[in-house]
Design a protein around this nucleic acid. Sequence first.
DNA 1: TGAAAGAACTACGAATTCGTATTAAAGGAG
DNA 2: CTCCTTTAATACGAATTCGTAGTTCTTTCA
Lengths: 158, 158
Amino acid sequence: MQQLYDLFLKTGLRPFAFMTETQPLEQKVTRSDLSTLLILLFRGDLTMSELAAEMGAPLSSMTSIAKRLERKGFIARATSAQDQRVKRVTLTQEGKQIAKESEQMMLSLLGRLEAVFTPEELEQFTMLVLKAARAFQSDGPSKLPETKKASVKITIEE
Amino acid sequence: MQQLYDLFLKTGLRPFAFMTETQPLEQKVTRSDLSTLLILLFRGDLTMSELAAEMGAPLSSMTSIAKRLERKGFIARATSAQDQRVKRVTLTQEGKQIAKESEQMMLSLLGRLEAVFTPEELEQFTMLVLKAARAFQSDGPSKLPETKKASVKITIEE
DNA sequence: TGAAAGAACTACGAATTCGTATTAAAGGAG
DNA sequence: CTCCTTTAATACGAATTCGTAGTTCTTTCA
């Protein structure tokens, strides 16, 4: 419990700094850039606002990130024909390439979890983390999808 | 599982932005400032290097943070008599005040967890999170203390 | 219809973090 | 004792994030 506290204190600055997998990719792009590319890969083309919402970031930050990614040639931004205010963001070929690499890296991270967790633990971990996240989510409408699950009995090893 | 993925993508930018308790305090100090004050409250006076290590931040960042906190009057830095290179960092009265407030806020956060988790779930949550953190910790010597615990059977509700 | 309200972005500046270079003290090796 | 290496910390500049203030369309409603 105290250890959870400690972990929390360290997590404010440089979150997830302990992960080594991210380093090679972070030579080319920022972590937020990387998140953006992954989101585009998963969700397809999005507007700036949608992207910002998916990232949980303010729109002004999203502008900075998009500008960077555009300069590096990883995304393209085109103003929508229906509504000329909105810009639709698309992955370029090169961007798709990086996004795929990022996905591999994420899978590798997930692999680490699977290496130390039993499948049941992994499921339980997921459920507990989501439950915790929901608990912290002020009292506003939960943005995270509700996971209704029947009770599960599992054994933690080690 | 996919939801864990999503949560991860959002956590890079603005980690723990979903917590409302931190907002009143973050008017006065940064989140990293807050971590620093808490660490000083728990561990007592520390040197700059020790502080950086506790924070998991580079020393140069620690310098910036300490300069800020000193300017605001929350800490004092005195060069050690034994070794004139090291600076010992101390909480001022006002700093102690803020640190105590921060501690209250942390307890309130913990209270949220206790509200939605059963004691067993909380224990399991702690164990699994620590286990996961250790798994991500490259292959270097684990900085987090090993939690050897016997197997536990628990039931997750909801 | 046309003026006001609202929406989707961008611009800009301030604050923060951090890598690299630098300063200053301490600890040897000869 | 003198030179060299190591250690503790700061200085500085670049990059990032984000709040606030525009800018440019779109919608509304009187």
